[in-house]
Each structure stands twice: as C-alpha cells, then as structure tokens.
Amino acid sequence: MIEFDEQNKRLVLKLVYYGPALSGKTTNLLCLHDRLLHEGRGELMMLDTTDDRTIYFDLLPFFYVAPSGFKIKLKVYTVPGQVRHDATRKAVLQRADGVVFVADSQAAQMNNNFESFDNLEKNIALVGLSFDRVPLVIQFNKRDLKGIIPEDELRETWGPTGLPVIMASALQGWGVVETFRDVVERTFDAADLRLGLQSRFGVDRGDFVATIMRIGQEDQ
C-alpha cells in the first residue's frame, strides 16, 4: 500500500506485473490502456527503454471516487524482466498490494518462468511482504503462438498451487482484461479486509470494479 490517508479519505494501491523477460508485461499494460475507458485512468507512462525493453518500469494509474467521496487510486506497474535488473524489481515490488505473474506459454520458456517465479517468491520476502497474503494471479500469455504448452498441462502443473491461472494473448487483446479484473477484485478484497473499505468508507466493491473496468464503446 502506497498511501492510506483516512482524514482525506484517500487510498493509493499498487499492482505489479511480474514475470520473465519478454513475457509481455508492458504489452498487457498497453492493451489495458487501449481497452479501458479513458475516464477512469491516467496516461500510460513508460520510462526509459532500450530496444523496446523495459529497464525501469511502466506505470498506468486508475482512479475511483466513491459516492461517499472516498478516493482510491490504483497504480499498475510493470517490472523489468531481465535477470540483471533484480534491484529494480525489488524497488518496484515494495509495498505491492497485488501481483500478476505474466508467464510465457512457449515450451522453451518454461525454465525462465520457473526461475522468475522463484525470484518473485524470494523478492516478495525480501521487501517484507508475505507470499501467502499478497493477491497473486498467474497469466499464461502468448496463447496465440505455436509451440506452447497445452492449457490442461499448465493447469495440471499450476493447479496444486491453488493460484488462479488465466490464459491470454496480450498481442491479440484477450485474457488481459480478465486477468486485470481478477487481480483488482482480489486486491480490493484484501484491502477491504484490512481497512473495512465497504463498512467504514462506503466503498462498494461492485461499483469500484465496474468503474475501473469500464470498457471502451467499440468493445461492448
């Protein structure tokens, strides 16, 4: 949690898109930027990149104001996936309220997925968060490609973890909004449990999610 100001009725939450290099984290944010209505969000800020690869992070902010006047800002970040940027990943991961792990579905990338997931587990502990408590959604991206691991096989592998697993193609634009909705709902629930957003601040869960997830006209 970046900020919780009870007096000014303001909450700032942080979501982080984690995952191995080139798994499509920035593409996820670009897709959300394109698909979701402009009213509820700010502009996508992409910090310096080299060869189109993220070296700092990308940021896409979302806003919600409840009828009670309580404001929630949701800042969605990506991390650089390359192994060498571990310090940056740790810095971005600090005080995250929810995490999306974007895995690459290609069979050749399975090792990178596992290594990155290990890295996430380690870094979550290093920045003082609890792996069991941070809402986490797994997205298997690049379902449009050939040479990918079949879905039932992935579900068999990841099913026992109890984590939600969502298939997606950020390039074709499907599965991305679903992933986002899932992590937003879980993040809201976790914050609600801690702060009593619904009971104490009159924030309605359905309204919050619907506002954040407003989809552009052409997609409806």
Binding site: M45, L47, D48, Y56, F57, L59, A87, T88, K90, A91, V92
Partner: peptide, 20 residues
C-alpha cells in the same frame, strides 16, 4: 511529466545504488 519521469528514474536509481 518529464520531471516526474526523471524523479522516478532517479528514485529507482538511488535505491539501487543504496542497496548495492
């Protein structure tokens, strides 16, 4: 906008330098 970007990269950079 540009200042914000610069500040964010500086922050990340500084925290990385600090950590290393």
């Amino acid at each position: 906008n540009n200042n914000l970007k610069r500040m964010l990269t500086t922050e990340v950079h500084t925290s990385i330098v600090q950590e290393s």
